[in-house]
Simulated assay, not measured.
Amino acid sequence: MNKIVGFLKFSDYDFEIGEPTHFQQLIEGNIFFQKISFFENNGTQAQKDIEVSTDFNKFIANEARTEVELYERYGLVKYTIPSIVALKYISGITVKKVHLSINSNIKMVLKEKNKNYINDVVKNSDYDVIVYPDEFILKSDNIYERYVENGRVKFKILKDYGFANSKITFLGNDNHATWRIASFIQVTDENVEINGKLKIDFLNKILDISSPKGSIAVNESGELRPWVYIPKEILFRKQNYIEKMGGGSVCYYTKNKYPFSINSFTANPNCLLLAKDVNYKNQFEFRLITGGPNETFKNEFSPLLNLGWRKSEIGYGTKIEELQNLNMSLI
């Protein structure tokens, strides 16, 4: 595994009245932790309708199933389909698990692949995450079960559904979740030349505005954003802050290759914020995370934290040439 040597953080010249610019504050060691909506509104839909891996399918398959009986043209029909599983995280960390039965207009749910029902759950739920079956598949048809009604023997049709895959949706928003994120570009020894400068290939990737998700190093006008470089030991020097935070390197994954297991996912809600589609891979992102998916995770951290570095301990600049000439071995 490649060793992290430091972090790049790009900023801007915005400021609040009477305050230094964001870039000046960053040079002085002040990091602003954004609400999660900032990342969603700026293209990072990593927490929305993620198609996950096989162990999530097994997780749903082993949970309770919804049974609904309807009188139809040819008699009584009994539908059996997998339930939606809703998770509520409680700081500590424990997880409350609830089965949401799909019993309202089940035929529409099957037809719409759960979409409308999921939307209703998202609007009305107090849960943090739902894991749900997608693309229902009829496993058995033309199977009958005998029953007695008003002294007469009758038969009901059994329709048992499985599913092709499963998805997870994060239900939190800024009114519900207390998460805040500070985002960096992590630099590993693989990205650094022997002379201590950043490799051209690495620079080209982080500056590439033609990549599917654009570049976080370049602003909307196509100009390089001002930047700082923080050596790893300097960022993590303030251990009393860092140890209370969550975070880590973001994992980039392709379809059906979600990087976290169901056990990791239920044990640590921050996994939701550390997995992103492979289209974001040129961001080389590292995240520090405060708070959590709901109010029980509130902590003492303010949105603006000083992580204690001095100007002499970091590199910083405003031009591409300065970034190209940055010598990390001298910092």
Score class of each variant (00 low, 15 high):
Asp128Gln: 12
Asn124Pro: 08
Ile102Gln: 01
Leu87Phe: 15
Lys88Met: 07
Gly151Cys: 04
Ser125Met: 04
Val95Thr: 15
Leu100Lys: 05
Lys123Arg: 09
Thr94Cys: 00
Asp126Trp: 13
Lys96Val: 12
Val109His: 09
Lys107Tyr: 01
Ile118Cys: 03
Asp134Pro: 00
Ser83Asn: 15
Tyr89Gln: 12
Thr94Ser: 14
Val122Arg: 11
Ser91Trp: 00
Ser83Pro: 00
Glu149Pro: 01
Asp141Phe: 11
Val131Trp: 03
Ala86Thr: 04
Val153Glu: 10
Asn124Phe: 12
Asn114Phe: 07
Asp128Phe: 12
Val148Leu: 06
Lys111Ala: 14
Ser91Gln: 01
Tyr117His: 11
Val148Asp: 09
Gly151Asn: 06
Asp120Val: 01
Asn114Ala: 14
Tyr132Arg: 03
Asp126Arg: 15
Glu145Leu: 06
Lys97Glu: 05
Val148Ser: 01
Ile143Gly: 00
Ile130Arg: 02
Ser125Lys: 03
Asp134Phe: 07
Ile81Gly: 05
Lys139Val: 06
Ile143Thr: 11
Val122Leu: 07
Val98Trp: 09
Ile93His: 15
Ser91Thr: 00
Ile90Val: 10
Gly151Leu: 09
Val109Met: 09
Lys88Ile: 02
Met108Gln: 05
Met108Thr: 07
Val95Trp: 10
Val153Thr: 10
Asn119Ala: 12
Asp120Ile: 00
Asn150Glu: 13
Lys88Phe: 13
Ser101Ala: 00
Thr94Ile: 08
Ser83Leu: 09
Leu110Asp: 07
Ile93Ala: 14
Tyr89Lys: 11
Asn105Gly: 09
Val85Ala: 04
Ser101Lys: 12
Asn103His: 08
Asp128His: 13
Lys107Gln: 07
Val98Leu: 13
Asn124Trp: 06
Lys88Thr: 15
Ser91Ile: 00
Val148Thr: 13
Asp134Met: 02
Val148Cys: 05
